[in-house]
Nucleic acid binder design. Structure first.
Lengths: 344, 344
DNA sequence: ACGCTGGGTGGGAGCGCTCCCACTGCGATG
DNA sequence: CATCGCAGTGGGAGCGCTCCCACCCAGCGT
């Protein structure tokens, strides 16, 4: 067998070939392929048959070249924050995004950004407008990406927001409300010295959870005690360190609200080492209601946020923004819900 | 600033514009952009300056149109198997793939396939050759995708294999060896009635784990007892059901090897409900050494497989295959390692 | 009978790039 | 001093598609 013949990847038929076969012009084939109504039933039938016979599939590159659409959107995850693997949160977002995108004809590009180098790569990529829109999760206050997106005027939806005055579209959970519910629950169980381990406060969501914690205490007339507040970073290790700090400062605490399940898991370890029983001595509440919550000892009471749904919603907003790149932004807050298990 | 000027997405400069500015021809600019050595230092400098001044970014669509390369690869995850969120395995793969791809100029496309509808979409996508190569994880024996990849002659690397005679390139872990190590460890701890909950046996990896289990027992002269084998599907629920079945059939068992951590977590729940102490009454070993393993009660002894590294390796093989689409396949097996914790 | 519509159609132009071939100039060679 | 490379260069052709304009017919009104 000749090498040449073997290498021929069976040249894909072009629009032109379909036109010839169907006995119509290129324009008509294009109209059929793109679902234009201005085609007679007869012509449409002929074209459709030719397409089927030839196994025609449009060449996306050629299409993009002229339409300057790409039919792809990027989901950007700044993985530096936490390892993707240990954060079920991201998986759920991905899952929701993917499901919702399935309805449309857009392809999902997953972009993990973990260092400066990769950020530059992404910047080039976005500048080249190789996607029609961007979904950005885990937004930090000083993240340069949202600004880039604004400058490029690229349709975008954030998960979380930089601040309360966020100018881009976003979807996020009612973090403050969830935290409030968690703390109220602890109060209702008779706890009085309720501590918290916060997330990274340069993330609005983490700050909101802290605010919710404070608000619930204030409402109940509990005097604020900054000694009961430790700062973490959403990771398990951060949870351990925060808990140790709290225990050292306020040995008498009888409850702790952790701004993530992973931190709650870390806190649990430290409490056990310190000989405190959970929930008898210290009640623990987490946030996210991730897989981890169901597997700790004891299982975690946690604030559930509809993560997958947030993913879906982000896509819906993005599609609207792509279809109609208006000035005005779409911003949505989803409710949270306390899931009570043994830990509190 | 005029509204019109503001709305103009500032038409991106073309190669032609760069050429004009640098006072050279299009060919020369193209050579510089693509790193051809056949350019004089002077011309190169002029072009590079022009590129910088104009902020030129090549148009990928135009490039693809003529090269028929896309500079993108797809990572396909048939999510039907298990929810992405509960399987840290996938996250680790993604992480490794993404990291390794960062070195090259290829973009990662994540494609989740959860039903027939989405499979068809993907088929169309691949047929249109919108990617240069495909990474496929979680391969089942009867999965139609590998065959499609072969037919399309699309460079591809599997994670796992359909069978021992897999014809495509693949990367997988030493599943049999890992299972053997797990069972030997149980034997060395004096356990005699060692049960197992298998994964879905239409996956070669799951079958290999079962084979390793059997082999270790045979080597130790322990007579085979099919009553000690229950079939699961890698999920937590599957683990629970398998464990119940085993307990009903062989109440005297003193150890169980689960083919995934998630199943081990399920088994743990059932054992506790049944009043068995772990590890005193029943020792438990999992597989994957995922996050879950560290959070169960007690923490799981588990077989670690280098998941992230597998992702990296898959990319390396794929790149070779893309660069040189030869007949011969590259197939790699990575070692596993037993991580001992309290559960066994 | 003669415009007029207007749905339906064909095909030229051109998107931005790479490929490739023809061509230039210059030093080395016979 | 003519001849031959050969590194370096410019630019035509063309990738497969959409856009758009000119055009072609019915079918309708006057």
């Amino acid at each position: 067998m000749s090498r040449a013949a073997q290498q021929q990847p069976a040249a894909r038929p072009t629009l032109e070939a379909v036109a010839a076969r169907a006995g119509v012009g290129r324009g008509t084939v294009s109209r059929v392929v793109n679902g234009s109504p201005k085609v007679s039933a007869k012509a449409r039938a002929a074209v459709e048959q030719a397409i089927a016979e030839l196994g025609y599939v449009p060449n996306q590159a050629a299409r993009s070249l002229v339409t300057s659409r790409t039919d792809a959107v990027a989901l950007v995850i700044p993985e530096s924050v936490a390892k993707l693997s240990s954060e079920p949160y991201f998986s759920d977002i991905i899952s929701g995004v993917s499901a919702e995108l399935g309805e449309s004809d857009l392809q999902l590009l997953l972009v993990l950004v973990r260092d400066e180098h990769e950020r530059e790569r992404l910047t080039r990529y976005l500048t080249a407008r190789r996607v029609d829109g961007v979904l950005l999760v885990s937004v930090h206050e000083d993240d340069p990406l949202p600004e880039l997106l604004e400058r490029l005027e690229l349709p975008a939806v954030l998960n979380g927001r930089r601040s309360a005055e966020e100018s881009l579209s976003y979807v996020h959970a009612d973090n403050a409300g969830g935290a409030r519910a968690a703390v109220r629950h602890l109060l209702s169980r008779g706890r009085t010295a309720i501590a918290t381990v916060t997330g990274p406060l340069d993330m609005e969501g983490a700050a909101a959870r802290l605010a919710g914690y404070r608000q619930a205490l204030a409402e109940a007339g509990v005097p604020a005690d900054e000694g009961l507040v430790a700062h973490g970073d959403f990771t398990e290790r951060g949870g351990r360190e925060g808990m140790r700090e709290l225990l050292a400062r306020r040995p008498g605490l009888d409850a702790v609200f952790c701004a993530s399940d992973l931190m709650a898991a870390g806190a649990l370890q430290v409490l056990r080492e310190a000989g405190r029983r959970v929930p008898q001595d210290v009640a623990v509440v987490g946030f996210d209601d991730s897989v981890v919550a169901r597997h700790t000892d004891p299982p975690l009471t946690s604030v559930r946020q509809p993560t997958e749904e947030m993913g879906r919603l982000m896509v819906q907003l993005l599609l609207k923004e792509i279809a109609e790149p208006g000035r005005f932004r779409r911003q949505t807050v989803l409710p949270t819900e306390l899931v009570v298990r043994e830990s509190a």
